[in-house]
Structures are given as C-alpha cells and as structure tokens.
Design a protein around this nucleic acid. Structure first.
Lengths: 145, 145
DNA sequence: GCTTGAACCTCAAGTGACTTGAAGTCCTAC
DNA sequence: GTAGGACTTCAAGTCACTTGAGGTTCAAGC
C-alpha cells in the first residue's frame, strides 16, 4: 500500500542501515532513487524487493561482486540459472572449508580451557597450559611430523 | 645455532610475511629489533618464539588486542592464568556461535543447489529456485513466524 | 504559523589486519 | 665489479561497511 518509503523505512523493512543503503547506491548495487523536493530519497516496492535480495545474498556470505552477478541474473532473462547454481556451489565449498577449520578450532579451545581448569587455574600466568599450547608451532600444516 | 635472522628468514620460520612482521612492529606487538649497519633488521631466537606465539594466537582467531593481553600474560609473572582461561573461553563462545551460523548456511546452500539441479538447471536465470530462495526475506530472526 | 527534534543530506575518515606498490638502498654470490 | 634478490620507508589499497562532522528538511504538537 505504502509506495513511497523513506530511507529509514526502507532500512527497517529490509533489515539494513541507512548508511549501508547509501553505500550500496554509491557502489552501483542499488540504482539511484527518486528524490523529494528537499533532496530526501524515496523508494518503492521494487527497491525493497531488490534490497531484500541483496541482504539475503550477503547473509549467505556472497561477496559483493557475486551479489552483483546474482542481481544481474535475477533481472536478465537471457542468462541461464546454471550460473546461479555455480555461484552457490562455489560458496558452499568455501563455507565447508571454513566449517572444518572452525571445528578444529573449537576442539582445540575446549581442550585448552579444560586442561587449564584441571591443571593450573589460578596459578601464575606464564605457567598456564593454554599459553604453553599457544607457544607451540602450528601443527595444522603437517599432521604427521 | 643461527642467532641472527633476517626478516625474510624470520618470516619463513614463523609462517608470516615480512610486511606482516613490520606491521606487528609498527603496532607495538613485536618490539623494535636490532639493526645491521645498513639498516636491515636482525632477529634472534626470542623473537622467533614470540612471533610464533602471536601467529598461533591469530590462527586461533584471537583479535590483535587479545593477543596483546596474551603476550603480556606470557611475559608477566604477576598475572594469573585465570585471565588466559577467560580469554580462551570468550573466544570459544564466539567460535561456537560462528559454527552454528555456518552450519545453517551450509544446509541452506546444499538445499539450494540440489533444488536447482532437480528443478530448473539450465533454464532462464530469473526463474531459478536459488534466486527465488534468495528473494525471500530472512527467516533466521524469527523461526516461529 | 512556529518550534522542536528526529530524520535526513553530503563528504571524509575510521575499522581490522593486513597487502600492495613505488622508489630507492643493501647484501651476497659469482 | 656487477647482477639481482632481499631489504628499506612511506603511502595507499583491500572489504564491507560504520562513524563523525556539520548542515538541511520534515512531521508533529502547540
């Protein structure tokens, strides 16, 4: 019903901040909106849809340049959705790599905290097992040696 | 044996880049090293140990300011290791939150890719189920509604 | 119609943790 | 002696915004 949205309302409804919207406009991800007499931006339903799409993409971890491709895909009848699948698949691979690293990190941190509580908690800083652990060179690169 | 390391060798042995080492020096995380006649930096075993510690902390996701605390902890007899445990615990909480978000992301992305392959792959971009999914407002904030 | 204060405007700089580039100097091996 | 690789400093770039300064416009209440 409400067609003309201020930047603040658009921000609210799309889950963004006004400065972020201006930033997206600046980098050409959102097109320049109409202005009121005083210079304030006004937006319509189409802008809300597009911005929501952009935010979703960002939540899904797509970097801005990929979001640009996806927006293009969404608005261009001539492009095949295979591109969208490929982008999603690349993104999935990245997410899975990050997951693996984070899981290893979690295991290590849990171990550190537990060891500290069992062995040295309350003792002098330099003797703490956590600091000892952190002083060892990384084992992540050569598991075998 | 080799006491005097150039910045390049130190970088190699610690798994860092020379500019990163200079950056750590600049922000006061590494102390200013001795110089040769010509101005080149030289490092010893202590520097290698400290830098290795810093890199490990960074690999574990500690932000620079926390690394600063941990270094202080490591070199200060008067501080208790409870502080180290608390920092590790805070970090663990953050890691676990990230893990949860990434797992949800992974599930969503897998779903998208699979759906696309089952339903629309090869079709025109704008009809792709992936783009439809991305156009829906986020459900992550209110699971129930 | 006037006032108040929230929301808006632009432009520039800041964030974190580095990386990259330019332009010049030093060191080592041949 | 010389070639070229490693080093030096300083500044600017990266990503995706966020924050701040300083000024203007809008909507609501009186």
């Amino acid at each position: 019903m409400d067609r003309a949205l201020s930047i603040g309302r658009l921000a609210e409804r799309s889950g963004t901040n006004p400065p972020t919207i201006r930033y997206y406009e600046q980098i050409g991800l959102l097109k320049r909106p109409d202005r009121r007499e005083g210079g304030h931006r006004t937006y319509g339903q189409t802008d809300l849809t597009r911005l929501t799409f952009i935010r979703r993409c960002r939540e899904f971890g797509f970097p801005i340049e990929q979001v640009r491709s996806l927006v293009d895909l969404l608005e261009n009848e001539d492009r095949s959705c295979t591109d969208a699948r490929d982008l999603a698949r690349d993104n999935l691979t990245l997410v899975q790599a990050k997951l693996e690293a984070l899981r290893a990190l979690e295991t290590n941190l849990i171990q550190m905290v537990n060891d500290c509580e069992a062995v040295c908690v309350g003792g002098p800083g330099p003797n703490c097992v956590i600091l000892e652990d952190l002083s060892e060179p990384s084992r992540s690169k050569c598991q075998g040696c």
